[in-house]
Design a protein around this nucleic acid. Structure first.
Length: 456
RNA sequence: GCUAAGGUGGCAGAAUGGUAAUGCGUCAGUCUCGAAAACUGGUGUCCUUACGGACUCGGAGGUUCGAAUCCUCCCCUUAGCGCCA
């Protein structure tokens, strides 16, 4: 949320920004109006309370001095006040709630360079990195590849949990763990602090990181457990970790990274009914998160992008960077870039990481501040986040980009020390159709191979 | 989960129905060539141009003219017991 005082003092800036982002600045006008009423009501309420405090004080004095007549008279006088105060309080509470709701709807002030555009189709491509692989054989998508290799089971998972879940098995599951370790090591070396967080949060903390719309579309809440919700990203739990804290200047920046499971409803999301690992209700993610002084946030923004790029470069996966245009920028962000990885099967880039500078918008909701050295003044900190690696999408990219003619999958070199194997070997026997069995020329060799594997 | 004791500013620690003592820390000023000590003033949030005022004792309600204090519900901490990956 924005600072009410800032809105009052910069109506023009906020209105223009809101209009640019949502097409209308009506909510700003509405806020100004409500906020004015609210402050008038507060003055009224304060005056009522003041007179109560005064009367109470005089009652106390009368009691102490033993002036019984005055005491009785004042009590009589005081008895009328609580009712009035209660009414004013109720009115105030209601108006305050309304005003806050509107305040939450006013979007963050964008960075001045955010490109114009209506929606995702108008996002700006910044650069492309890496060689797009060429295949001299018909390629398969990750679902076919994984099912043929029997390293994933999407039938069973949809049976037991519904669509959007997965069983990954054997080499694929180990590759998943290898990706996690690889990303953790990569960020550890950069001096970021590793954190493991709660996977459930109260509503207030979840709400701090995003807006109402995003929550309704993504957040799972736990039935019968008060207002507990599964996190959609460790961004939420990392932000909440410093809820209410005031840092000294020397403590900042706080650079964190975290590994967690993420849970998302994906209501209305395109592709949630598609089989596979690309869009799922549950996935593993290594997330980067920074709390910093306001003047430093753009510097760290670049760092966060570099860290993730480095990971994809080391995995030798072709990717591109795009910048979110106004129409595709979430309300709480000041600026955002995505990293998209190449998917040869659909001949498109697909989102694998999302970088954001939320400036002070998130931190204000949880009252996270920094005490300035010079003038002893507190200032709301800036928060930034970027995916380091969401493993399920990286798995898709690896399966599809590293597939071989025989259906086996090469393991990216940097991951081999974590997996312990260099290739996910194609299965020798394909018993599905008779013709294929006939085609197999060396059944002895196949048997030998099988024995070797089972010995391992 | 049970039992017991607790939860008051950055920290320690009083106030048991009369409007949050005090100490430490910290910041500023005086003094000093400078520092220390000493002294003086400030040190949570909000409203107000200001004068002022309101709020704040883990949270939410309630009783009362008035609640840190009494009542109800909830949360958390510590210790012991129980259960458990």
């Amino acid at each position: 949320m924005l600072d009410s005082k800032f809105i009052r003092e910069n109506v023009k800036v906020v209105s223009e920004n809101t209009k640019k982002r949502t097409g209308s600045d009506l909510i700003v006008k509405e806020f100004i109006n409500k906020d004015k009423q609210l402050r008038e009501l507060q003055l009224e309420l304060d005056n009522l309370r003041h007179s109560r405090n005064k009367v109470s004080e005089s009652i106390n004095e009368a009691k102490k001095s033993g002036n019984n007549q005055l005491f009785q008279q004042k009590i009589k006088e005081a008895k009328e006040l609580p009712e009035k105060i209660k009414k004013a309080e109720e009115k105030y509470g209601l108006l305050e709630k309304e005003t806050k709701e509107i305040l939450f709807k006013i979007p963050n002030i964008m960075h001045k360079n955010v490109p114009l555009g209506k929606d995702a189709s108008e996002n700006k491509e910044i650069k492309k990195v890496g060689q797009i692989p060429k295949f001299n054989f018909p390629i398969k998508n990750h679902v076919e590849l994984a099912e043929n290799l029997k390293i994933a089971d999407f039938e069973k998972s949809s049976q037991v949990s519904g669509n959007g879940f997965y069983y990954i098995k054997k080499e694929l599951a180990l590759l998943n763990q290898a990706l996690i370790r690889f990303a953790l090591d990569s960020l550890s070396k950069k001096g970021y602090e590793y954190i493991e967080t709660p996977l459930m949060l109260h509503e207030k903390e979840v709400y701090a990181s995003m807006d109402r719309g995003a929550i309704e579309q993504s957040v799972y809440s736990i039935k019968g457990e008060g207002d507990l919700n599964l996190i959609g990203t460790a961004e939420q739990s990392l932000l909440a970790m410093h809820s209410g804290d005031t840092f000294s200047e020397s403590e900042l920046p706080k650079k964190y990274f975290s590994y967690s499971m993420c849970f998302r409803k994906e209501v209305g999301a395109h592709g949630i009914n598609e089989k596979g690992l690309w869009r799922t209700h549950q996935f593993n993610k290594i997330e980067q998160f920074i709390f910093c002084k306001p003047e430093d946030s753009w510097k760290y923004y670049d760092d966060l992008l570099k860290n993730t790029e480095e990971i994809f470069q080391k995995l030798k996966l072709p990717y591109r960077i795009i910048e979110m245009c106004v129409g595709d920028l979430s309300s709480w962000k000041a600026k955002s870039h995505d990293i998209e990885v190449w998917r040869p099967t659909i001949k498109e880039y697909g989102e694998v990481a999302s970088l954001s500078n939320c400036t002070d918008y998130q931190a204000r909701k949880l009252n996270i501040k920094v005490m300035r050295d010079n003038n002893q003044e507190k200032q709301v900190v800036h928060t930034l986040n970027n995916t380091a690696l969401a493993t399920s999408r990286a798995l898709v990219a690896i399966l599809e980009n590293y597939q071989q003619k025989d259906g086996s999958i090469k393991i990216p070199t940097v991951l081999q020390k974590y997996t312990g194997f260099k290739i996910i070997k194609a299965l020798a026997i394909k018993p599905k159709s008779k013709t294929k069995i006939i085609k197999q020329k060396h059944p002895k060799k196949i048997l030998e191979k099988k024995n070797k594997i089972s010995k391992k």
